[in-house]
């Protein structure tokens, strides 16, 4: 996987600047080579009192209830929470694939256009009937981008995720981790204002996971997308996030929202070595441990 030299020192100043200017547009955001670039692409999320109630055979089930969430354009928001607390439900509502049954959702972008989003789904989502390249180019094809142009775009993304050699392969010829990278490239291909990622690295081995985390950060830093990212990994949450939302057990609702203080652009090794890392890790784990216990009891009671 190509991973260029990181010029941490030269842009860390700009990185801090970015964080403090996300409130009002236009947003200044450092590119990889340290230049400041005006970006107006990231989506802004305002969620208030959001709830989603499912009707099941045994009555109602509130997957999420009273969710308040604010994500600024270009912000990287990570959601953690016990299994079944409604993270996927929330993400699907943000993606427009499902509707809330209560509360309000407002997505806007600093430009006048309504923001676009692309979701990386939990589990199997790469079309088995398309080649790797066709999968990545799929969204562009739907948008009417010409064959050659979308092929080139797909190839460059495949290069980014380290799958150039497999452009013509079919998904069944790939490993699980490789398929997941195809799914990520497919979402990035349409250059969305809002990138929704549901445990995208969950099925990957740790080395690949670290590489893709770096790669994702690099892409994010270059493009100024807003990201909402779900993970079960506390470590992953800390190294990626500006803001970590810890969800409570069912019905899911944000319990605590933490701001991650590490400067941008980040080097993952530096973040992990930072003295502030361990206390933050422990704090999140303490919060989660209670919720996981609640979730366990709840699951047990259901049976």
């Amino acid at each position: 996987m190509p991973s260029g030299p990181k010029e941490v020192g030269s842009v860390s100043q700009a990185g801090i600047l970015t964080r403090s200017t996300t409130i009002e547009s236009p947003i200044l955001r450092p590119t990889r080579n340290g230049r400041l670039q005006q970006e107006i692409s990231g989506a802004r999320i305002r969620v208030a009192g959001l709830g989603r109630r499912f009707e099941t055979a045994h009555g109602y089930l509130d997957a999420i209830r009273g969710v308040d969430l604010a994500v600024e354009p270009g912000e990287f928001c990570v959601i953690v929470g016990p299994s079944g607390c409604g993270k996927t439900t929330l993400l699907r509502i943000l993606a427009g694939l499902d509707r809330q049954t209560s509360g309000s959702l407002d997505l806007s972008s600093p430009g006048s256009e309504p923001p676009t989003n692309a979701m990386v789904f939990q589990g199997r989502s790469v079309f088995p009937w398309l080649t790797v390249r066709q999968n990545v180019a799929y969204g562009l094809k739907l948008r009417g981008v010409g064959r050659r142009e979308r092929g080139a775009a797909a190839d460059s993304l495949l290069d980014t995720v380290g799958l150039s050699r497999f452009a013509r392969a079919y998904p069944h010829q790939l490993s699980e981790g490789m398929r997941q990278r195809v799914a990520i490239a497919r979402a990035l291909a349409v250059d969305p204002d809002l990138l929704l990622m549901d445990e995208p690295f969950g099925s990957l081995d740790e080395q690949t996971r670290f590489l893709l985390q770096e790669e994702l950060l690099r892409i994010w830093e270059q493009t100024g997308k807003t990201v909402v990212f779900i993970t079960h990994s506390i470590d992953e949450a800390i190294v990626l996030a500006d803001q970590i939302v810890v969800m409570s057990a069912q019905p899911g609702t944000p319990k605590v929202t933490l701001t991650v203080p590490f400067p941008r652009p980040r080097s993952l090794t530096e973040v992990r070595g930072n003295p502030a890392f361990a206390p933050l890790f422990n704090q999140i784990w303490e919060l989660l441990r209670d919720e996981v216990h609640v979730a366990r009891r709840f699951e047990g009671a259901k049976r």
């Binding site: 692309a118 199997r124 079309f127 009937w129 799929y138 739907l142 349409v190």
Partner: peptide, 24 residues
Amino acid sequence: SYRDVARNLGANPLELFLTVALPG
């Protein structure tokens, strides 16, 4: 989830049929 992917990337019903239901 394949249907969700297609819808999320903006497929209309005809495209959903041609790119998901039929090949699937």
